[in-house]
Design a binder for these strands. Structure first.
Lengths: 154, 154
DNA sequence: ATGAGTGCAAATGGTTTGCAAGGCC
DNA sequence: GGCCTTGCAAACCATTTGCACTCAT
């Protein structure tokens, strides 16, 4: 089980301190779990379940509050799949744009698209609509290769 | 107050009948309200409020059920702004792709982007990730021209 | 000792569901 | 008669909030 490296902890502590927040054991454990489950896009409830193994007294409300806070300060970001609950993923410091997601409507697998590809489109829209774009959310719904191979779907 | 034209009613009736559903007065009134409020992106609750003026006995549950049904058969489509409730807009029969939305984070205005612009990107992703894209959702968050002109935001 | 952070339980609010009654083929 | 549809009220469930308590600085 990989834990937070000391450089990661430093970075986290600084991000929090910048806005006047503290790095509590609970907050640390939550970030730890999110990092350890990178790519899994955990829901708040799932984070709660996992965090309890190393922080048994933690309350669900704390997880909700923390996850909101971490989103605010830009350590993690919310991913809405519109299935009734919010999911979260870490933001890597090298990332300067939100990546996109391919969502398989058959098996619910989520594939990340790291290529940006949206830059020229954004420029065009900013000009045409006189709108300053600060962020974006791009999701593609469809059928992944495994589900297509399985033969049931084309 | 524009009402549904007879050709629109025919199209709607057929879409419903195809799947074995009936065109009830409630369903008709709901579609009517959605069309009359095109561009407003009404929430279910807002649709309910408006529909009651011409259908006072209608229940909120009926609106929820209808809106779900109309989404299923492709007459309207859901727009999630992740603000805790679902909004709906009609799909025009000429549209073969979902259009995009610019969302002003200051005044919550929603601007529609009819240009597709995503076609080449989809082709590229389909090939690279071996993923059959069926639909997409693209939202840009930022600040609209009026809010920028007002001087408060840059 | 002051204010931030927490755990718990209760409240909130959008959406869904169970059910009895109504309406149409 | 059977089935779809509806209205109502209750249930659901993710998230938020109030509050008393704890804990660092």
């Amino acid at each position: 089980m990989t834990k937070l490296s000391s450089s990661e902890i430093e970075r986290l502590k600084n991000s929090l301190k910048e806005k006047g927040y503290k790095l509590t054991p609970q907050r640390r454990a939550i970030v730890d779990i999110i990092i350890r489950n990178e790519g899994k896009h955990l829901t708040t409830e799932e984070i709660y379940d996992q965090v309890r193994s190393e922080c048994p007294e933690i309350g669900l409300a704390t997880v909700y509050r923390t996850v909101q806070l971490l989103d605010e300060i830009g350590v993690i970001c919310k991913l809405e799949l519109d299935d009734g609950c919010s999911r979260y993923e870490i933001i890597h410091k090298e990332e300067n744009h939100r990546h996109h997601h391919l969502i398989c409507t058959k098996c619910s697998k989520i594939i990340e698209v790291t290529d940006d590809l949206l830059e020229p489109l954004e420029k065009e829209i900013e000009k045409k609509y006189d709108f300053k774009i600060l962020n974006h959310s791009l999701k593609f719904y469809g059928i992944c290769s495994e589900c297509r191979k399985s033969g049931k779907y084309k």
